[in-house]
Write a protein that binds this DNA or RNA. Structure first.
Lengths: 296, 296
DNA sequence: AATAATTATTCGAGATAGTAATAATAAGTT
DNA sequence: AACTTATTATTACTATCTCGAATAATTATT
């Protein structure tokens, strides 16, 4: 038996008219008649006494009607439960490292929200370590990290490659150049990420590759503090261009591109392997992956 | 949604295995998978987290499972109710006038019971007036009467035509004849039906037709008393042959056929027009109607 | 008895659910 | 980390079922 048939039966009993019931369900009178016949056959009982017009319910018909009502009521309740669930479960928890600014995520988030306007997308900024921990705990659905590390229980997808630039105070002599040779950084006062920050390794690699050794005067585990340190001309640093857009606009920081080549910090999307993302979250991941390999 | 799908889902949840669920329902594993997908699509929710094996229920899945269980339980209850109903409602109440003996009905009843052995066929003997009253009240499904009267709310079908014979005591001189001319009944002591018994009119008609007037010494409203009166040689009567089979066998009564022509008492099946008979009762009526016009 | 209103039946077209075969995926094993 | 095994998903195709339009049959009314 079909829920639709049950609903049709109930409506028929209440309307006492085949054609109007058919209209109500946008089907033909014939279909209603056939469904009724089928129901009666399936249950080996007569539900209507057709010798009278309008028809009257037989005892079996009354029994069937009550059952259909009960069943449909429970079915409706189910729908309420499910829709309530879908509203709350359609919260996507995304966590990003500090250094991936709103500037990078914004276009994706904007596009996502236009498709799924009702989804509650929560974005929080954490350090990479915390992201992995919460991801595995299940507190986070999607993580965005720099230089993602492989893990057996985590799926990693490439996200954007962020261009790295030299960043300094407007007071600093470097700020006057249009381009800079990375070798000029030799011996410069440098504000670095702490060792545990993945970006640190990335930047160290680049410097090492060009045989440049800087004078690390300060280390911070987050990009905001690094920027504040550079602003007061404590030193220079190498940072993702996208993470200093606000400061460039306000003029509190200057960035100078490298003349040698374009350096990038790879970023990635991390997701727990055994976590079944809902449709919306899947779409968001797809969206982010489309940015994969793109340079920002 | 389909009840079968709900059952499949519940079994799947309990067995945690698509193939075994499929076996249980005698369908392919593919079908189970497709049904699941369809259910999820119809309810716009994921019920299973397929990233794990064996799969685990999502929150929506748990909600759905509970609802399915409830619905199936109510559905089972419905079946119990209906089958209980069909057992009691498959009682057919048939009422016959006294004068239609078991001899006439027996072959029909026998054939009927061979087809519907579980049906509770109740046969009671009432006078015609009572049969019409109870038929209209709904206490009786099928009535068997002599010389049925038309009525706007009753359907009448012909049943057998019962041969009428002269009945007398073995003591009576008529008992020696093989055949008798109806004119010989002129002035005979006659045991008659009371006026309100339809057969009375039938027999009166026949006598009148031949210009015979009998001497009615007694009137009874039922055939049994008439027979007892004849046995003690209080008089003769005209009765249906089939109603005196037992007495003929035991020799307490004698019957003599009329030489003039064969006289018949027509009998009929009466059914309320607005009463929807169940399959079994319909079959019984069909069976009886096949005897329509037959002479017993 | 004729008519109007309603329901049942028939039949062809389109939708649906099923199967078998195959691909994809998760977990266990070397 | 690459295989293997066990399980589930997908695909392509077929048989079945449902629906709608037209028509027949039935009930109630005039």
């Amino acid at each position: 038996m079909n829920m639709e048939s049950a609903k049709i039966f109930c409506d028929l009993v209440e309307l006492k008219n085949f054609s109007r019931t058919a209209e109500l369900h946008n089907i033909s009178q014939s279909a209603v008649s056939q469904q009724l016949a089928q129901l009666e056959m399936a249950h080996k009982a007569q539900f209507l006494n057709r010798k009278k017009r309008p028809f009257e319910l037989t005892t079996a018909g009354q029994t069937f009607y009550r059952a259909c009502k009960d069943i449909l009521e429970r079915y409706d309740q189910l729908h309420n439960e499910l829709s309530a669930l879908s509203k709350t479960s359609c919260k996507i928890n995304l966590a990003s490292i500090f250094s991936i600014g709103m500037h990078t995520l914004q276009p994706y988030v904007k596009q996502f929200m236009s498709i799924y306007p009702d989804v509650n997308l929560s974005i929080e900024y954490l350090d990479a370590k915390e992201i992995y921990i919460r991801l595995l705990k299940g507190n986070i659905d999607i993580g965005v990290v720099a230089i993602p590390k492989r893990d057996r229980s985590i799926n990693v997808y490439n996200f954007v490659n962020e261009p790295l630039t030299m960043v300094c105070s407007p007071e600093h002599p470097f700020s006057l150049s249009q381009e800079i040779d990375i070798h000029h950084l030799q011996g410069e006062r440098f504000i670095a990420f702490t060792e545990n920050v993945p970006s640190r390794q990335c930047i160290d690699e680049i410097l090492k590759q060009f045989g440049v050794s800087v004078h690390a005067v300060m280390e911070f585990d987050n990009i905001e503090t690094i920027k504040r340190a550079i602003e007061i001309n404590s030193g220079i640093s190498i940072l993702p261009q996208t993470s200093i857009m606000a400061e460039l606009n306000s003029g509190t920081l200057k960035s100078v591109a490298f003349m040698n080549e374009h350096f990038y910090r790879p970023t990635g999307i991390v997701i727990r392997k055994d976590c079944q993302l809902n449709k919306a979250a899947q779409y968001l991941v797809e969206l982010l992956r489309k940015g994969s390999g793109n340079d920002v």
